[in-house]
Write a protein that binds this DNA or RNA. Structure first.
Lengths: 337, 337
DNA sequence: TTGAAAGCGCTAACAA
DNA sequence: TTGTTAGCGCTTTCAA
């Protein structure tokens, strides 16, 4: 019932090979033939069957993106960069949202293994998919790129921000505002971002000769709710602190909520800085100081490199990208006399 | 180099047909054979080539979603409902984000025509893809579902909210708060949602015997920026009004910004109600009154119906779903004596 | 319950 | 420049 390349060939009075050549702009076709074929294609409203093309050409022009939670605006923004670059290069994107279920992350790799997608990008995926597995797959010619993680393999494009550096900026800024007791609200303790941000926090304290106090650290989950509870636990410990560095803006939102409930004034009684430049951060009151990471650009860059590498069919010399982020000081951490 | 079904068959000492049966749980295989095959599959780390399966089975288990702008949280939420339902039914989803380029919307239909996807869902897509085209495609057995639109064809599952009804609720609420001059900020004038919300606005005025004044209507674009400018134009006209019904929350955000700049106090000098229950609406100050639409559920429902219809291979008797929305009254429109 | 074999619709190697 | 034809790796019909 569907129209096939054979039907078009018959009508245009040429071979299927010629029709295929026209479809794929492979040159080697006289203008007259091309026109004749093109007319038949249009007259018959022919649409080449993509699945046949996939099988034969061994390419689907699709890229998968595994992300732990697409609701997190930080990830969503990266994915947007991936999508736009992919589409501009004629690739489609399948988003594999694990919705915070680690087991799902591994399962989505099947799309790569079974050739549904030509490549897979892992966005801040840790733990569930080991470095070893990634290296193995790349050795078997599967194409993989990672965001927010470093893989020791020349065939894996990697991109991440310098968590340590901007965390030092954040804590340095807070110290500059006169704060001496600064709490740190971590994300999932096993996330690389959490770990590195903590590292930057400690490093800044050290450089400023301030003591590191374990009791000022609490773990959250990168979500509003987790930030709320982590902050509450901090309060219950009755330790002194005048500022909070929250590992992301979402958790800072939870801190705002807790402060509102407890009547703690921001920034007069408590200064807060988050990370991500979440859109909400500039709509809340007071506006939240945060760190702007080039999320979109990171997604676009990793995708570009991965596609280039696939098409050139050899590893790129530059495959590791460490990008800088910018501290945005807003009212939540400004000195108030 | 890849392992194929034939290789597995050889190792398991059965035919490829039997391996295929095991892979697809098609029964008719003795437990002993099944185990033998399963073991070979695992031992060889075999992953069936999906593209071959697509071609042969004439299904890709993928659904496309055309959305005019995934950045709009309203659409993103619907898409999330689609994705979850799709994944729970073993379908993958390809998001086709037109990024506000109408021409793109049409182009994405190609994925349906060339069999990359088994079905396509149109989320609030108007204009670019005509009713007639949709009907034509469905007549040719392509599977299409629509959100936020009604198609006169028994084969097209449709879901939308009752814009007129909740708009009447909004305007009725404002009138109940004592407002007599209520401005309406529309979205794109050609969007069905804009039109119907305006209709509800007018109907509520009529029911309450208030005059309809054309000068109180301004068109925006459903974005913050558009809302800002639409509101500015309203102000410049120097007409009296004490309340604004904004066709969505994004535009209301623009109104907030304009009010902040001009020193207009909300809700004392101006009451505002939006639509969408955008996450930001409860973080801004004062919290924005809005309308909560069951976006996620709508996405999930249309997907479920579409998949069911595909699998049952016949049109469903119930295919049109009109769902209700709920007015959330918050501080931005509460009476202040 | 299992196997042999046709063929899904296309691309690409080879021949003309 | 064009045509012929062999598969791509799988599912499924038919026969055993």
């Amino acid at each position: 019932m569907d129209i096939k390349i054979k039907d078009v060939a018959k009508v245009a009075n040429v071979s299927v090979a010629t029709v295929s050549r026209v479809l794929n702009n492979s040159g080697l076709v006289t203008e007259a033939t091309r026109r004749k074929v093109q007319e038949a294609i249009e007259a018959m409203n022919y649409h080449p069957n993509a699945t046949a093309k996939f099988l034969r050409s061994k390419k689907t022009m699709m890229i998968g993106v595994i992300v732990s939670d697409i609701n997190v605006s930080y990830y969503a923004e990266i994915v947007k960069g991936i999508e736009n670059m992919a589409y501009s290069r004629d690739y489609k994107v399948i988003i594999c949202d694990a919705q915070n279920q680690k087991e799902e992350e591994l399962g989505y790799l099947e799309l790569l293994l079974n050739r549904t997608v030509d490549a897979m990008i892992l966005v801040s995926i840790n733990g569930s998919i080991s470095d070893e597995l990634i290296c193995n797959l790349v050795d078997k010619n599967y194409n993989i790129g990672v965001v927010g993680r470093y893989i020791e393999h020349p065939g894996v494009p990697c991109i991440f921000t310098d968590n340590v550096k901007f965390s030092m900026d954040v804590v340095g800024h807070l110290i500059g505002q006169g704060h001496k007791n600064i709490a740190f609200l971590s994300g999932y303790p096993d996330a690389l971002d959490s770990y590195e941000r903590l590292e930057g926090y400690m490093k800044a304290l050290r450089e400023n000769r301030l003591p590191f106090r374990q009791e000022l650290i609490e773990n959250g989950d990168f979500n509003e709710e987790g930030g709320y509870h982590a902050f509450k636990r901090l309060i219950e410990k009755e330790v002194d602190f005048t500022a909070v560095y929250s590992a992301n803006d979402e958790m800072a939102l939870g801190v705002y909520r807790a402060c509102a409930e407890m009547g703690i004034r921001i920034p007069e009684e408590l200064a807060i800085v988050g990370v991500d430049n979440n859109r909400i951060s500039k709509y809340i009151s007071p506006r939240l100081s945060t760190v702007n990471q080039p999320k979109y650009a990171m997604g676009a860059l990793i995708t570009e490199k991965l596609i280039d590498q696939m098409n050139e069919n050899q590893f790129k010399e530059q495959r590791v990208f460490k990008v800088d982020s910018e501290l945005l000081v807003r009212e939540s951490s400004k000195f108030v006399k």
